[in-house]
Each structure stands twice: as structure tokens, then as C-alpha cells.
Design a protein around this nucleic acid. Structure first.
Lengths: 185, 185
DNA sequence: TTAATCATGTAACACGTTACATGATTGC
DNA sequence: GCAATCATGTAACGTGTTACATGATTAA
């Protein structure tokens, strides 16, 4: 799975604590992968057990002590192998899993207004997501100016563009669906 | 979760065996929800335990005997409640989970050709999915002619259109991304 | 003769989610 | 005075995946 590999990728940029990893994960990889804090701690413990990481406890004044994780050679190797995997999860990438679409599928079993209300909520959420992504992209663009590591940022922008296209498609679908359903009321 | 509710929805159309449910599930709900056969059997057993279903063993000649599942009143109620839920999983519907995008995100850590190869594979898969969906839509259209239960089919088509928009967005994204990356080689 | 279809499942493991616990410090 | 931030985790449960087992029949 990829929570592990996301953590490896982040730790490759530098030593971090579990708490910092959780924040970094949500801020950067959060769009296409989500993990609860508790899960991240569990994975970190597992990764340390399998020799990918070492941890060092750092005692702080005025704050709880933290554990800094660092990649080992084995961890770097695991990351490199994942990056070099020619398969790269392409097949699963297109898979949709949506209770919402399932609900729409069974729309014929309920009064139309209920499904319409649901699709309206979906449209609103999609528009919100689109706006939020715009804000993220703006902050990436800003970051790009100060630290012009163009090589990395290029790929970050690609991922953001995927999100943009996805949310746009969602909004467009919802609008058309609503126009169709509302016309028949 | 929704595997349960998908099964309830299918059983609402008529009595079926686990094997038939698995096939029906993959054929109709498979686009937006996937379940292994073994998981379906497990869920059916759990649903029977909680009183949503009853099962009857049917002995067949020349074929292994099967178990036919039927909705109980409690099962119908559970389905109705799920259908009436005003939330309907809208928030989670937009969530993306993609190891592929994570891999692209870290594209700066590998030679560009590797990421390009990956995105090409993704583009090919997306085009394939789009074609496959076209075939599905055609068979739905055909089915619509013979059994013109327009009310149900309307919603099926809506779901198919979502898939169409999604795959199209994927193909478009991949093409643009490739054009950008290949130009800099 | 090999694979696919029919039909059911068990077992084990992997991953995701939710609730809870601790306890000091800082900002509204 | 209350909520948020910092920082770590445990426990339990829910869901998803993979491998395996059985065994007859039918089509390429």
C-alpha cells in the first residue's frame, strides 16, 4: 500500500516527527491519499520494525517530547523500488468507489426530489472543492517563486491539474443531471 | 458501508443467490463499487444474522446446490432508510485515493522517462475504460428498448454519464501532461 | 486436456476508522 | 474559562484482499 510510501517520500526530504508527518501528509498528499493520525503512528511503528526507519526521542521544554524519524538505507531502497515500479498502480487509479453514485443508481426507488437534493449537495461540494484547490494551487505558485525547484514543482502542478479536471467534471455532470431531473418535475 | 446496501438494492428486484448477486453486482454496480465474491458471501451471512435477509437452500441437479436470499421487512426498512438518508455519502464521493497520483507527485525523484511511461499507461487505461463504458451504455440503451422502465433507466444513464465525464477528464489530463513532459525531453 | 462456469465458503492478513487517554501551553 | 495546538499512542472494530478448498459439468 501507499501510505507507507508516501511517508517514505516525505521523510526523504528530511527528518520529521509523526506529528509533522501527519500535517505534511494532509497538506501535500492529502488530496489523493488520506490517513488518520493514529494510522500514521501505527505505520511508522511497523516501518521501524521492518528496518526502513530509525527513530530518536527528542525531549522538549514546554512541549511534549517527540520522536524524530529518519530513513535508513533499507528505507531508501524501498522508496526507490516503489518509484521504479513500472506498474505504479495505474489500473486501480481509475477505480471509482462511491456510495453517492450507488444511491443515484437506485434513484428510481425514491421520490425524485430526494435524489435532486442529493445531487445539489454534491454539486455544492464539488464547487467548494474546486475553489479550495484553486487556493492550494495559488499557494504552490507562490512557493514556486521563493524556492524555484522547478523540477519538483512541475509534478505537483500536474497532480493539482488532475484534481482540477476531476472536480470540473463533477460540477459539470451535476449541473447537467439537475437540469435534466428538474425539467421533469 | 455500502456493499450491504447495494446487495439490499439488488435483492429488492428479486430473490437471488450469492453467486448471482456477485455477477449482478459486477455488471451493474461494479463501476462505482467493487466486492470480491468472498466478501459478498461474508456480508450476506452478516446481513442474515442481523435479520435483513432469509435464505433458502435449493438443491439442483447437475449443478451445486445454491442458497436463495430474500429481503425481510427489516431488510426493506434498512434499504429505505439508506435511500432516505439526506447525507448520502456526498462528502466522501469526491475523495480521490490514488497511488498513481502519489507516484506522479514524487516524479521529480526519478528520471522523467519513467513518469512519462507511467502516464502513458494511465492514458491507455483511461481510453480503454472509456471504450468499455461506451459498450455498457449501448447495452443499457438496448435494454431500455425492451424493458422501457424509463424511471429506473434514467438514473442508470446518469451514473454512466458520470463515468464518461470522469474517464474523459482522465484522458484529457494525461494527454496534456504528456505533451508538457515530452516537450522537455 | 485445459480452462471456464457453477456455487459455496474459510482463514488469515492488511488496511482504514473511531473512540479514547494523557497533559502542559497558548491565544481568544 | 474554553478551545486549540503540540505530541504520542492503544484498543476495538469494520472493511477489503488474497489464497485456498471442493467438485461436477461443459465448451474450445
Amino acid at each position: 500500500m501507499s501510505l507507507k510510501h508516501g511517508l517514505l517520500g516525505l521523510l526523504n526530504y528530511g527528518v520529521m516527527s509523526g506529528y509533522e508527518l501527519n500535517k505534511a501528509f494532509n497538506a501535500s498528499l492529502g488530496f489523493f491519499w488520506q490517513g488518520q493520525a493514529s494510522q500514521i503512528y501505527r505505520e511508522l511503528a511497523a516501518m521501524e520494525r521492518s528496518g526502513w526507519l530509525t527513530s530518536e526521542r527528542v525531549v522538549q521544554e514546554d512541549k511534549p517530547s517527540k520522536k524524530l524519524y529518519a530513513l535508513t538505507e533499507a528505507g531508501k531502497k524501498a522508496l526507490a523500488e516503489w518509484l521504479a515500479d513500472p506498474d505504479g498502480g495505474v489500473a486501480e487509479a481509475l477505480r471509482v468507489r462511491s456510495a453517492f453514485l450507488m444511491r443515484v443508481f437506485f434513484g428510481g426507488e425514491t421520490p425524485p426530489v430526494e435524489t435532486i437534493a442529493l445531487i445539489r449537495a454534491f454539486r455544492d461540494e464539488s464547487e467548494k472543492a474546486l475553489r479550495a484547490l484553486g487556493a492550494t494551487s495559488a499557494s504552490v505558485a507562490e512557493y514556486a517563486q521563493t524556492v524555484p525547484d522547478e523540477n519538483k514543482i512541475k509534478y505537483w502542478r500536474l497532480v493539482a491539474k488532475f484534481g482540477d479536471g476531476y472536480y470540473r467534471a463533477a460540477v459539470e455532470w451535476a449541473r447537467k443531471a439537475l437540469a435534466e431531473l428538474e425539467a421533469k418535475l
